[in-house]
Computed example of a mutant assay.
Amino acid sequence: MLRRRILSIAFLSLLILSGLSSFIGTGIIPTSAETTGGSPTDLSGITVGIYAGYFSSIDPRVNESRTALYNMFTWMNASVFVFNTTELLNGCLWACEILAIPEGLGPTMENRLTNDGLQAIREWVALGGSYIGVRGSAAIAMNGSYFEGYTTTFDLALVNGTSYEVTDLEDRQMTNVSINRDSTGPDLSDMPVNQSVLFVTGRYFVPDSGQDVIYIANYTHSNLPAMIAGGFGQGNYFVSSPHFEYEENGDRDGTDYMDEYDDPDSEWPMLLTISRWLVDSSPTVANISSWPYTPPAPLPMDLILISAGVGAVLILVAVVVVKRR
């Protein structure tokens, strides 16, 4: 009888410890998405992974773009998590249907992703994943770049073509894009003819001969492609040189970055339509909820103290029972 009691206590201890291990080892801390009453055209039930990019106190653009993307996809009712390069290499892409990368310097971004990480993204998209890029992360989706007098080749290269510097706009300004409401991809027929967007030293996209793309929006002043989409293997992509993640006239993007600009339009409804189309027109690739070898997230100190206390009590009880025997 005494032995059974000791085994029961030990089993209870293992249950508690295994529960804590599960809590620690989970690779995702998703945002709770409001799924009640959601429209069938939102992203309820869809998981979006956002690559952290790189953190810089000197250049805030990556941090702010990441924040705005996170809040935009949360607004769409998606479950959202942010991951780093280690988690990318450990397979976290297979937990999501959409990968979004914030803006940043293209060469720096590819260096942080690593060659193995870039290959992992390509393989994931080829099997049905959906890639979304903005500004610098849009540029690396093209295999060629001509910007500020330099020719660059990128390795992510989901599109055979080149992005070129826009030279007839200011480095930073609001500008208009003309929406392709006859798009053969996402149904944009309900979108406005023109939208005001934030342009920051941007590009236009020129696909190589034989490379099929879907033109989503062109710069109104030049009619050159500012936003494009298309397929890569069984998956697909949407890339935009102008920013779509910021709400310059509102605070739901979670940042006041670029709020000095006046933008009466929101690109979020169009991005919701595009994101829904990306998911609906490609196979489901998400098949895991956690992945191996992810560095454990630190537990809150009060939980650590409580769990340590419980463990100590259980061990003490077990020792007392043994001694009484």
Rank of each mutant, 00 (worst) to 15 (best):
L88F: 05
L88K: 02
L88G: 00
L89F: 05
L89R: 04
L89E: 02
L89A: 07
N90E: 07
G91Y: 03
G91E: 00
G91P: 00
C92D: 14
C92W: 14
C92P: 12
L93T: 00
L93E: 05
W94G: 07
A95V: 11
A95Y: 10
C96V: 10
C96Q: 12
C96W: 10
E97P: 09
E97M: 05
L99V: 05
A100V: 13
A100G: 11
I101L: 04
I101S: 03
I101V: 09
I101Y: 08
P102F: 08
P102T: 03
E103Q: 15
G104M: 04
L105F: 14
G106Y: 10
G106K: 10
G106N: 07
G106L: 09
G106E: 11
P107G: 05
P107H: 01
P107I: 09
P107A: 07
T108G: 08
T108V: 14
T108A: 14
M109H: 08
M109P: 07
M109R: 08
E110F: 06
E110S: 05
E110C: 03
E110V: 05
R112G: 12
R112S: 12
L113M: 03
L113Q: 01
T114K: 00
T114Y: 03
N115T: 11
D116F: 15
D116T: 09
G117Q: 05
G117M: 07
G117P: 06
L118G: 07
L118E: 07
L118S: 08
Q119R: 10
A120T: 11
A120Q: 12
A120W: 12
I121T: 00
I121D: 01
I121N: 00
I121K: 00
R122T: 03
R122G: 01
R122S: 08
R122C: 04
E123V: 04
W124G: 00
W124L: 01
W124T: 05
V125R: 01
A126G: 08
A126W: 09
L127V: 14
L127Y: 14
G129H: 02
G129A: 01
Y131Q: 02
Y131E: 02
G133E: 05
G133K: 06
V134C: 10
V134E: 10
R135L: 15
R135A: 14
R135P: 14
R135D: 15
G136P: 06
G136V: 07
S137I: 00
S137D: 03
S137R: 02
A138I: 07
A139V: 12
I140Y: 02
I140Q: 01
A141L: 08
M142E: 11
M142G: 10
N143Y: 04
G144M: 09
G144A: 12
S145M: 10
S145L: 08
Y146C: 09
Y146D: 11
Y146W: 11
F147R: 09
F147V: 09
F147A: 08
E148L: 14
G149C: 00
G149E: 05
G149D: 03
G149A: 04
Y150W: 15
Y150M: 15
Y150A: 14
T151A: 14
T151W: 15
T152P: 06
T152D: 12
T153R: 13
T153P: 10
T153G: 12
F154W: 13
F154I: 08
F154D: 06
D155T: 13
D155N: 13
L156Y: 02
L156A: 02
